[in-house]
Amino acid sequence: MPYFSSSAIRAAEYNAASLTLAITFTSGRTYDYYGVPQYIYNGLLAASSKGEYFNDNIRDQYRDR
């Protein structure tokens, strides 16, 4: 699981088989996002601002729990 030095996101883990992205925020809470394509996860890994990428490309775009 990659860990980030981000003010918003601590870590992210991707399961390609189920298209599930688990994001752990700096608050310590982890949310699972469903139906996330691999390229979105790759974009998060490459983003200079993890929080901005999350807000623009993941938040409110995929079903979460």
Rank of each mutant, 00 (worst) to 15 (best):
D60M: 07
L44G: 03
P2A: 12
F54T: 01
F25P: 04
A17W: 05
G43Q: 04
M1V: 11
N15L: 07
G35S: 11
Y39R: 09
D64S: 13
L19C: 08
A12Y: 03
G28Y: 08
D60Y: 04
Y39Q: 12
Y33D: 12
S6A: 00
D56I: 01
K50E: 11
Y31W: 13
G43L: 05
A17S: 13
D32I: 04
L44R: 04
N57H: 08
N57A: 02
T24L: 15
D32S: 15
G43I: 04
N55P: 00
P37V: 10
Y34W: 09
L21D: 06
L45N: 13
S7G: 05
I58A: 02
I58R: 03
V36P: 02
M1T: 08
R65N: 15
S5W: 06
R29T: 14
T30L: 12
Q61Y: 11
S18Q: 11
Y34H: 11
F4Y: 14
S5D: 08
S49I: 05
A47D: 00
I58V: 05
E52C: 03
S5F: 08
A12C: 13
A11K: 11
R10P: 00
R63A: 15
A16K: 15
S49T: 11
T24V: 13
A46I: 01
L19R: 15
R29K: 15
I23Y: 05
F4A: 04
P37A: 09
D32V: 08
M1Y: 07
A16F: 09
Y39G: 01
A22K: 10
F25R: 12
T30G: 04
A12P: 05
F25D: 09
P2Q: 13
T30Q: 15
R65K: 14
S18H: 10
Q61I: 06
I23P: 03
D60V: 06
G43H: 02
G43W: 00
A46C: 06
D64M: 15
S48Y: 00
T24G: 13
G51C: 05
